[in-house]
Structure formats: C-alpha cells, structure tokens
C-alpha cells in the first residue's frame, strides 16, 4: 500500500513537472513573479537591502527561466558572432552575474506595489512572445514591465526584460560595441569580470 502511494506520488510529481514545462509564457511569468514577491513581502532582510539574500532568491526561483546566452547575444548585437565558443560561454557567465545582481538589487526596493498581468497575444504556434505586466503603485502612473520569451525544448525562456520601455539588455549595446571596437571580445570579457569583482567586493 505504501509502495502504491509513493508510486502515485511519484507519478503526480512527474506529471506536475511536465505540466510546469508546458506553462504558457504568461502563466509562467505570473507564477514566478508571485512566488518571488510572496517571499520578498515576508523577508525583512531583503526589504532592508540584503542583496546577498535577494541574489540567492533570484538564483533559485528566477534564473532557471532565463536564457543568458541569448541575452548576451542580444546585448552584443553583431559582435556576438566575433566571439568563439569559449568566449561566448565566458561572456554569458559574466553578463549573467551582472544582471542577476542588478535585478536582485531592484527587488530590495520592493515595497507594497502590486503587479497587473495583461493579456498576452499568442498567435498560434508562435515561439517568440512578449508578456506585458504593470507595476501598480497608488498615485503613480503604472510602470510597464515586459518580458520577451522564446520557446525552447525545455520550456519558455526569458531573453529580455523591459522596464518603462528600457531594455535592461539592449541598454548595454552601445557600451559593449564601443568596448569590442576598442579592445576586442577579450576586452569586453575583462570589462565585465572587473565590474563583477568590484561589485562583489564593494557590497555584501
């Protein structure tokens, strides 16, 4: 009987993880956002600016749904193809560290805003969509927070985050292009890694 139950449980769990993978992009964004905000609302450390804790939360809950290779390619534009496989890997690693830190830091500013999820247009079979949400705060114009996602074999992955019309990814385009022009792809890797080291040592 016990064996039957654990079998049933196992089946349920695997079934739910299959369903999780088949989340529609807007359902995925909503699920992850609510999970993260529920934790932030209860965590006084994060609210008081504990970036380390916010980073841990983002790494566990948010990171699996992001495609950092695609993000890095988008930030670099045409220069992405100048990098070899190894450089691409290092660029993505460094850019990931930087974005996670920035995003986590923004979480520590969270107070009592609520999120409104806007209906997502999903033309049938489309593998690339934008999920639109809004941050609501009484007395202020809602702030748009949009996510670009693409369908991957393992599910939908975010490759761009756009706050008030500003893409956190392509906002780096000009800076990265300039660096590659001046010091090559390795120069950009170095610039990213130096920035991450500086942030790492500067704050906890």
């Amino acid at each position: 009987m016990k064996g039957f139950f654990s079998l049933l449980l196992g089946l349920l769990l695997s079934a739910s993880s299959v369903f999780a993978q088949e989340d529609s992009p807007d359902a995925l964004i909503k699920k992850v956002t609510e999970e993260v905000l529920t934790i932030v609302r209860q965590d006084k450390d994060i609210q008081n600016g504990n970036t380390r804790k916010a980073i841990e939360l983002v790494e566990v809950k948010v990171l699996p749904h992001f495609n950092f290779q695609r993000m890095t390619a988008l930030a670099m534009g045409k220069d992405w193809n100048k990098a070899n496989a190894d450089q691409k890997k290092r660029l993505s690693e460094e850019f990931k560290t930087l974005l996670v830190r920035t995003y986590s830091n923004a979480l520590t500013s969270y107070r009592d805003q609520t999120i409104r999820y806007k209906p997502t247009k999903m033309p049938g079979g489309d593998a690339d969509v934008i999920v639109k949400t809004e941050i609501l705060q009484p007395g202020s114009k809602p702030v748009q927070l949009d996510y670009s996602l693409e369908k991957q074999p393992e599910g939908w992955k975010v490759y761009d985050v756009i706050v008030a019309g500003v893409s956190l990814v392509t906002n780096y385009r000009d800076t990265f292009t300039q660096e590659v022009r001046a010091n090559g792809v390795d120069g950009l890797i170095q610039m990213l890694s130096a920035k991450n080291k500086q942030l790492e040592s500067g704050k906890k």
Binding site: L98, R101, D174, T175
Partner: peptide, 30 residues
Amino acid sequence: SLLPADKVVEQAAFDKYNYIRDAYFQNRRS
C-alpha cells in the same frame, strides 16, 4: 522618488553617463 532607480543604475552601469543616455532614448521612444 528616483532613489531606488539610482541604486540600480549605480550597480548596472559601466559608465553612468552612457547608461542614463541610452535608457533615456529607449524610455522616451516607448
């Protein structure tokens, strides 16, 4: 009201001047 954004920009930007300029272009267009 801009203080939270400050914190993000300080961390995210390689060159604050560039970061603010490029964000301004994107934000106004939007």
